[in-house]
Design a protein around this nucleic acid. Sequence first.
DNA 1: GCCGTTTTCGGCCCGACTGTTTTCAGTCG
Length: 579
Amino acid sequence: MPDFTNAAIAQYFDELGDLYELDGAVVHRVMAYRNAAKAVRDAPVSVAALAKEGRVTTLPGIGKTLEEKIVTLLDTGGIPSLDRLRAKFPPGLLDMTRLPGLGPKRARKLFDDLRIDSLDALREAAESERLRGVRGFGPKFEQAVLEAFAAGVAERPAPRVLLPRALGIGEQITSALRSLPGVDRVELAGSARRLADSVKDLDVIATASDPKALTGAFARLDVIESAGSAGENAVRGRTHSGLAVDVRVVEPDLFGNLLQHFTGSKDHNMQLREAMVRRGLHVSEYGILDDATGETTRCAREEEVYERLGLAWIPPELREGRGELEAAAAGTLPRLIEVSDLKGELHSHTVLSDGRQTAEEMALAARERGLEYIAHTDHSATHGFGNHVDPDTLKAQIEHVRELNERIEGIELLIGTETNILPDGSPDYDDELLAELDWVVGSVHTSFGMAEHEMTKRLVAACEHPWIDAIGHPTGRKIERRKPYAVDMNRVIEAAARTHTMLEINAAPDRRDLNDVHARNARDAGVKILIDSDAHGVRELALARWGVATARRAWLTPDDVANTRPWPEFAAMRKRARA
DNA sequence: GCCGTTTTCGGCCCGACTGTTTTCAGTCG
């Protein structure tokens, strides 16, 4: 039997958490399963392998009981308690909790009293006004259910917006609010400030001498379609594009507390508060209450919040509950990479395949951005969109780029390729041709539906190929649009480390692939990371910033990223230079 | 179910809002 990936094991624990919640278990037990799922999902090594070695309890949140469950899963392919709970609660029960105001407790109540076990049954019961007969439910709830169905909430989860678009809207709003008279500070908080892959809504916080004037002005902004009060000094709006925006206005001496609170993440704040309660400090958006003195500290600046708690200020990108609190306490937070650290672009396209500009135009634009080298990596012979590059065309391009490199000053031009990794793991040019290039990225563009162990074998074989320097967008995901293909990334990372194959963080904002967790695990395993724009035109060279965002969320320093080095140093790090 | 500057039991974040309730449990962020 193939090993379970961390993601697969994590999914079992998430499901167990959901089902135990329906079963009425104490919340802390449910939390334990969800914490365990997160720990397993983020683990830098194979949890299955750890379990076999008897060391899985070294992971935070995995104790004796969960160790047993993992071992049983590996041995038998299942978990008895999960089978029992699945038999007890129909799958539709969990779907029902997608409705606003309907959590596990109330869903269970409807199941017990009315045998409602699906969204369809729930809608029917609301229409026939049978819900109001249950204690704790009334006409307003029935109405809310029907409204949710009418809005299509039940069918599809609310769409998330990709980070660049969310930031664009957010910056438009914050700059408009900043220009108002009597407005002091305005900042974007939430997942947008943490530079997450995508965001559900925007959080804006501000200080102003006249809060009512600010919330009123927000409601009248061109981008805002509708807005309504959300309590004192707060307003909730919706943009024409459907993005929810929350604005809160506070007194200046609480701005730091509020910014910290609303930047999150939930995990970060929970861990922070738990750790501080042990020291007699209670952290909330209203300040820091000290049990010893009974006094509450209010902070105008966010730095003061962390300082008061004895912690270094933590960059928002790190606030995901992945060890940042321990590092901040120990003074070991990393010096995170910045866009200005990048010196080379190793993945870009020209008109030779599907790009919009010539190699010369791309090179000049890269030089303009301050880069010291750029590799032209057009698609290969089996690209399949009518713009593939056959071997003879590539040979001519080698000559062309070499000639350009002679002529263009101030930047090193490299000729490379983004070769397709065929289903058997081999590239689609022969080795003699690849050997003539300066640089080879190998990517999967076909046969996404392979079984996990086949896809893993395919990528491991690509890593083992002597002329493939790096793997491009290693999981093939498109954020909010396409799941990653099934692959055991821990095995691929291990192979990349062993073969000195670099792994790319593709910076296209809908890819960001490797993601933050994989990139951090790869770095920990000794893999050198690339940050590439995958530009198909000169303007897209700027997309590198989204790759840097992912790298920062992965705790990467300039040293962890190969293309922060000048060309001669980078050249020597290539697999082909090591042979 | 996990975990330990309140170590092997008794804790395990904070606050607002909602609808249904006579004081609050459940939900949400």
